[in-house]
Amino acid sequence: MRALRKTLMVFGSGILLSSALPAAANYDQHPRVNEFIAEAAAEYKIPADDIRQWLAQAEKLDSVLAAIARPAEKVKEWDEYQDIFLTSKRINAGKAFMKEHAALLREAEEKYGVKKEIIAAIIGVETFYGTRQGNYRVLDSLATLAFDYPDRPLFWRELKAFFALAEAEQINPATIKGSYAGAMGYGQFIPTSFLNFAVDADGDGRRDLWANPADAIFSVANYFSKHGWKNGEAVTQRVHVSGDKYEQIVNDNLKPNWTVSELKALGIEPTEKVSDEKPANLIRLQGKHGAEFWLGEHNFYVITRYNHSRMYAMAVYQLSEALK
């Protein structure tokens, strides 16, 4: 029996809902549903009847549409943003998490070449070390966004991938919970990231990012490794600026597309030793005491592959430093 035809399947302790399904939104009758089903069937070989069955059970959530319109990164400056993620509570919980999972973090660091503090910091920022994984049914969130959100292509793709991962992992899609945007588990992987980067760390035949810390930790490390993390290299450092030439390139790109020597010529001076030939860019954040200037190096850019926000990357970096 195909996974999508099953009424209930237990997969870990943290992702099951009550057997009562929410009120349907008739997504199985949406004007574009046949197009969606055809694409998912062709791309992932999922039977059309399975997809239609689960879309019939999806609920439209207005709360999801409201939440997607106001992500935290667009309404806060760094001086506020850091107060969310760099608290003593989160730091202390992170140290406890690292102590509890010291062996797993060490193994992941050795296998993937990604600092254990960075792995822990990602999980700490995303879900407070697995304790806040989201209370939305991912089926509802992604169906709402795929069919009722104006910027559909991203979520259209993620909904197809969601059905594919449920099929691959033998999970009933109506039981999976996550964020309003369809991110799941300790590390809040979206479905395409799950398919591409989730790993079965303990060899039990499942990639359980919801209830298995080993799979979650190794998957985050694998994500960073596949996105080019350079073990032993710096992430960022404070810099001083002078004159006004630097204004033309500040925050111009997430990717480091200047050399340090080129930045120096524009009045940017590092505070730590760094090669003149190293790729970097100039970051400006509005801190509690005014503008802060930072050198965005390659590994800082890699963090932004997880979330395309300078403030997010800075929060991860500074939390990782506090966890050392």
Rank of each mutant, 00 (worst) to 15 (best):
Y246N: 02
F218K: 01
E233N: 05
G178L: 09
F194R: 09
L254N: 10
K177G: 00
G203V: 06
S193K: 05
V250E: 05
K245S: 08
V260N: 00
V250P: 04
G205R: 06
P213Y: 13
Y180D: 00
G187N: 05
S179V: 15
L254G: 13
A216S: 13
R238P: 13
T192V: 06
N212F: 06
T259Y: 02
V220A: 06
G187I: 08
T192N: 13
L195Q: 13
R238A: 15
T192C: 07
P173E: 12
E262I: 00
D204N: 11
L263M: 14
W258V: 01
K230I: 05
V199N: 03
Y246V: 10
D244M: 06
D244I: 02
G187T: 15
Y223V: 10
G205N: 07
Q188C: 03
A164N: 08
A211D: 07
D215G: 13
F224M: 12
N251Q: 07
V241T: 03
S261A: 09
F163Q: 04
K230G: 04
W210E: 09
L165K: 04
K160R: 15
D252W: 15
A221H: 01
L254A: 15
G243D: 14
Y223D: 01
A234T: 03
N172H: 11
G243C: 06
L263T: 00
N253K: 10
F224Q: 05
P191F: 08
S219W: 00
F162V: 04
R206P: 01
V260Q: 00
N253I: 08
A216N: 12
L165T: 11
Y180E: 07
A183F: 07
Y223S: 01
N231R: 01
K226Y: 08
Q248C: 07
L165I: 14
F189L: 10
L254I: 15
A234V: 01
K245Q: 11
W229M: 04
H227Y: 08
E262P: 00
A174G: 06
K177I: 10
D215K: 14
A174S: 13
L209W: 12
A161N: 14
P173K: 10
G187D: 05
A166K: 00
N196C: 04
S219Q: 06
F224D: 04
A221T: 08
G182R: 03
Q237E: 10
F189R: 06
N257K: 09
P173A: 02
W210A: 15
V250H: 11
Y223E: 04
L266C: 03
R238E: 14
A183Y: 09
W210K: 14
F197H: 12
S219M: 05
V239G: 02
D204T: 05
D244C: 09
V250G: 08
H227Q: 03
T236D: 06
Q188N: 05
I249T: 09
F197R: 14
S179R: 00
A211W: 02
I190L: 11
S193F: 09
W210L: 15
N231H: 02
